[in-house]
Simulated assay, not measured.
Amino acid sequence: MRKETIVENLNRVRERIVTTCAACGRDPGAVSLLAVSKTRPAEDLRAAYVAGQRHFGENYLQEAQEKRQQLADLDICWHFIGPLQSNKTRAVAEGFHWLHTVDRLKIARRLSAQRPPEMPPLNICLQVNVDAEESKSGVSVQALPALAAAVAELPNLRLRGLMAIPAPRESAARQREPFAQLAQLLRQLRNQLPGQPLDTLSMGMSGDMEAAIACGATIVRIGTDIFGARN
């Protein structure tokens, strides 16, 4: 994609965030834009970086590793937002700043053990299966409190909050339902674990970003509306 188009798209998304925050009485500075860059070439990420974007989300580990090497001269904050198998945890523990998709204690324990001691703790979001879909990753709502308590005890992880990928819904009102549920779950965790930061709701994508922001999203994960439709 042309660099100019990426810059224009980024500016449009940023304007949407500002407009949505104004409509629901939120500070736009409280919502971070995560550019979802899976399948995009490194030069597209570089164009977005030049336009001020610093946070990038990758779903596929090998592809992400290649881009990290190609863009090593840039001060990028790397987020891993795809499903993570236990045999691939070391690469995330050693190379990423954030992981949004923890849904099992086994994965969290491996990440904590493999995080290099000279690095700050790895920022963690627990992925919640808010729609109880059998085909979706994520911890169940019922199992969330126990998993959160266990992850909070691990020394090299920093439990920041929750992430969800709800099933598509046709109206803005319906879109808000799972986001409001996730926000309520985070409030409950804050009461359960008062010593944890728990300041993050990673929710909302190109098609439902406004609904997510209205319900308290602090990170919106936007790919298509920045980089265009994937091939």
Rank of each mutant, 00 (worst) to 15 (best):
G52Q: 07
Q69G: 12
L185S: 01
G52W: 08
A132C: 10
I219H: 15
C24A: 12
L154C: 06
P28T: 01
L84A: 05
A51V: 10
L84K: 06
A30I: 06
Y60A: 09
R40K: 14
H100N: 09
A93E: 09
Q181G: 11
A229N: 10
L126D: 04
Q127C: 07
Y49P: 05
E58P: 02
C125L: 13
A164W: 12
W78A: 12
M205P: 04
A132Q: 14
F96D: 08
R104H: 11
G95V: 04
T39V: 11
F56V: 02
E4F: 09
A180V: 11
S140Y: 02
M163K: 08
E43A: 14
T101S: 15
M119S: 13
E15D: 15
S86Y: 06
G195L: 02
N87T: 08
Q196H: 07
A211F: 01
G25W: 14
L201T: 05
T20I: 05
V128L: 10
A22H: 14
L144H: 02
S137M: 04
P166W: 13
R46K: 14
I226G: 01
L201A: 08
R40V: 04
Q188V: 02
V220R: 03
E153T: 09
P116N: 03
E15L: 14
Q85M: 07
R221L: 07
V151I: 13
V130P: 06
V130C: 12
M209A: 04
D44L: 05
V31K: 00
A48Q: 09
Q142W: 03
R26D: 04
C125E: 11
L186S: 00
D131Y: 08
R26H: 13
I165A: 09
S202V: 06
N9M: 05
L193R: 06
M119E: 15
G207I: 06
K136Y: 02
E43H: 15
V141T: 10
L182P: 00
H100V: 06
R46H: 09
L71Y: 03
S112G: 03
E63F: 08
R115K: 07
A35L: 01
I213L: 02
N11D: 07
G57D: 06
S32K: 14
T200A: 10
Q62N: 09
R12S: 11
V102W: 01
D27N: 14
H55W: 12
F56T: 03
A23C: 10
G95P: 13
R26I: 12
G52M: 11
Q184D: 13
S112C: 00
A164G: 11
L154P: 06
L201Q: 09
I17K: 00
D225I: 00
S137N: 14
P166Q: 10
R110H: 07
T200M: 11
V128N: 13
L182Y: 04
V102Y: 07
L45M: 15
C21S: 11
N11V: 00
N11T: 05
I165Q: 08
V151D: 04
A35Q: 01
A93G: 07
L10R: 08
P194S: 02
C21G: 05
D199L: 07
M209I: 00
T224S: 14
L34N: 00
R90N: 05
R104K: 13
I222R: 00
A51Y: 07
L159G: 09
R109I: 01
L34Q: 03
L74A: 05
A23D: 14
A108R: 02
D131M: 11
R54P: 01
H100W: 10
A22K: 13
